[in-house]
Write a protein that binds this DNA or RNA. Structure first.
Lengths: 194, 194
DNA sequence: ATTCGATCTGACCGAAGGTCACAATACAAC
DNA sequence: GTTGTATTGTGACCTTCGGTCAGATCGAAT
């Protein structure tokens, strides 16, 4: 994980990873089959170590779906500074490998749902905070896509369409963006006010 | 473009591209500097060849923002079948290269806005069909992200099953998906009914 | 025809993913 | 402890492919 996080997928060399682990290059291929297999294992570990939506503190969860959403949006930057390696690996897996590996990654994401997005959406629907007139899967996909992309933009200039990094050092703007984003999301998938 | 579309980024070999063009490998590097440079050029061409939002037929544009949106959502599948190469190249650029190349791609997308998303959103705001209580950039980013992702899902359904979808391809649900997607988007960024 | 810069060429290089015959180790049976 | 077998580890070697460069070729100006 660390090596991929530091060097990217292409930039990471299997032999270096092996040397750091004190084993021979051949052993890495013995265990993981290929560089892609090695990365996939690292990716799964990285993503599994990240918090799921409903892992927010109990008092936040008690306040409901939207409190949890805003909690994580605001918390992302913090988490990344504390523990940037899994985020970086996840970013690389999402955008920086190749399509066949991306397919394996996606299959895994769909089957494992490591962030518990489906649970989270169902939690929101059960509380009457998320609309139920659209299939849960569609809502969950939308939340997945947008939250992932928004976090990625928040975190890295590589994927930022100018939202956060165009004007450096404007924390109040960042906060405004988070609020606007949550507002758009609330409008999209929240229950309509009567 | 064709070669990248058929083989992916990693799978495309510069020498093969050169041979197909009837020139020497060295010449490719002369012109484009590197494989990444070659791909970037192909990517720009591919995306530039795709229609912008407001390139929809005049009578559709006359019917407003949401008519244009639905027009393109429904038309995408057609376009992809007629002319899959640029879509595939765009997909590869979005997910299948590496982060440093992705950075260049993103810079270009932000500076060129090849789909004219900002124009399109401003068009919608001017007609009172898109909300104006949120910064245009945020709205445009959201539209960009979702439309891109939606399109990718359609492309990969045809070209690379299992890459994006929670569910296997179900043609009869296609229309429903498009409608739900448009509905979510309308809720998110449309003007609120009074 | 000559000159000279721009462009093209392909043999060559080096890096890195991947292989495999052999070595080392672990473990079971006696 | 010894022997036999299976599992795991090793690193020299192979192949592929992005990238380089010295020389060849082209083309416009004189």
């Amino acid at each position: 994980m660390r090596h991929f996080a530091e060097h990217g997928y292409q930039g990471a060399r299997v032999e270096d990873v092996a040397r750091e682990l004190g084993i021979a290059k051949g052993s890495v291929f013995q265990h993981f089959g290929s560089k892609a297999g090695l990365f996939l294992a690292a990716y799964k570990r990285a993503v599994s170590s990240l918090p799921a939506w409903l892992d927010a503190p109990a008092e936040v969860v008690d306040r409901g779906f939207w409190a949890v959403l805003v909690y994580w949006l605001e918390r992302t930057e913090h988490l990344i500074r504390e523990d940037w390696i899994p985020y970086r690996v996840s970013l690389i897996g999402n955008y920086g490998t190749d399509l066949s590996l991306k397919r394996d990654i996606n299959r895994w994401l769909v089957s494992e749902d490591p962030y518990g997005t489906l649970d989270f959406v169902e939690f929101g629907v059960a509380r009457g905070e998320v609309r139920s007139d659209v299939e849960v899967e569609v809502t969950a996909s939308m939340l997945d896509w947008l939250a992932e992309r928004f976090q990625d933009a928040l975190v890295t200039e590589e994927l930022d369409p100018g939202l956060f990094h165009r004007h450096p050092h404007q924390p109040q703007r960042r906060q405004a963006r988070i609020e606007q984003f949550a507002e758009l999301l609330r409008s999209a998938i929240g229950t309509r006010p009567a």
